[in-house]
């Protein structure tokens, strides 16, 4: 109960911060994009990004990272690497051998469907009322026609695409910076903001309200992770095979893809998301 209170308090606090920030965003959106010469979307951003420049200082800060904890992060990266080869990979091998792909795919759908409240709430918190409606429709369709979410008829038959939003992205939209990059044990790449978002999302997951046991939640999380791995078995090993420095490569992939997801609302350069 104590945790809930803290969470609420923090939410209220953040909303205050968010309100102050929201004004700026409103102004940016009112202006025609051409007039301010700000990139309008991801494609404009890619055109504007010329990261080859005579003067290194002139480089857009967009691609920079804040990683003062690199030695510790590298330690946990190694730890996760060992965890992968010694534990996850053999477990996944057995798991894949026992369960056919169709079943694993369906379980993946179930996991995604069950976390719909997180996406619903965060779409609303970001002011994406229409998308929140789509999340709700998807949840209702998939929970009934899709048999408890094991199928995805909302996408296949109704063409409703998923609208992934989490609390980390909501915080970003509210103007909270990324904070330092973190490579967390077991969980993997993150940053201060997204770690907080991850913890907050755990509280809006329906699981915690049905089963009041941390071990059941942890087991469910571990199971969903193994399942996800079984559906994308080559991802990590490919990254390691192609990279000269897998730690840096993973950090870049994480930060870039997160910034890309956050950027879907804000018409701002990624530089502005920096913590510094």
């Amino acid at each position: 109960m104590k945790h809930h209170l803290w969470y609420l308090l923090f939410l209220v606090l953040l909303t205050c911060v968010g309100c102050a920030q929201q004004k700026d965003i409103g102004i940016v959106q009112d202006l025609p994009v051409e007039a301010v010469e700000e990139p309008g979307d991801a494609m404009d951003m890619m055109l504007a990004d010329d990261f080859y420049d005579e003067d290194d200082n002139a480089l857009c800060e967009a691609h920079t990272f804040n990683d003062p904890l690199e030695p510790i992060n590298r330690f946990f990266f190694e730890f996760n690497d060992k965890l992968y080869y010694w534990f996850l990979k053999p477990v996944n091998k057995a798991y894949t051998a026992v369960l056919p792909i169709e079943l694993r795919f369906s379980f993946g759908n179930f996991v995604v469907n069950l976390s719909a409240p997180i996406r619903f709430l965060n779409n609303l918190l970001q002011g994406k009322v229409y998308d929140a409606g789509i999340v709700l429709s998807r949840f209702l369709i998939n929970s009934t026609l899709g048999v408890y979410g094991f199928g995805d008829p909302a996408l296949v038959d109704f063409g409703l695409e998923p609208k992934p939003e989490d609390f980390g992205q909501t915080l970003a939209v509210w103007g909270v910076g990324e904070g330092v990059y973190l490579c967390l044990p077991v969980i993997g790449p993150s940053n201060v903001r997204d770690s907080f978002g991850f913890a907050a999302d755990a509280y809006t997951h329906p699981m915690v309200y049905f089963v009041d046991d941390i071990w059941v939640s942890a087991g469910y999380y571990a199971g969903s992770r193994i399942n996800l791995l079984s559906l994308n078995p080559d991802l990590y090993e490919d990254l390691k095979a192609y990279a000269l420095d897998p730690y840096v490569s993973m950090r870049q992939v994480y930060l870039d893809s997160r910034r890309n997801r956050v950027d879907d609302l804000k018409l701002k350069q990624r530089c502005d998301n920096d913590f510094k």
Partner: peptide, 16 residues
């Protein structure tokens, strides 16, 4: 999906 091939290697080479 927002991940640039060049940028990814660039950061690796910079770190090295």
């Amino acid at each position: 999906e927002g991940v640039s091939l060049v940028q990814n290697y660039r950061e690796q080479f910079r770190s090295i």
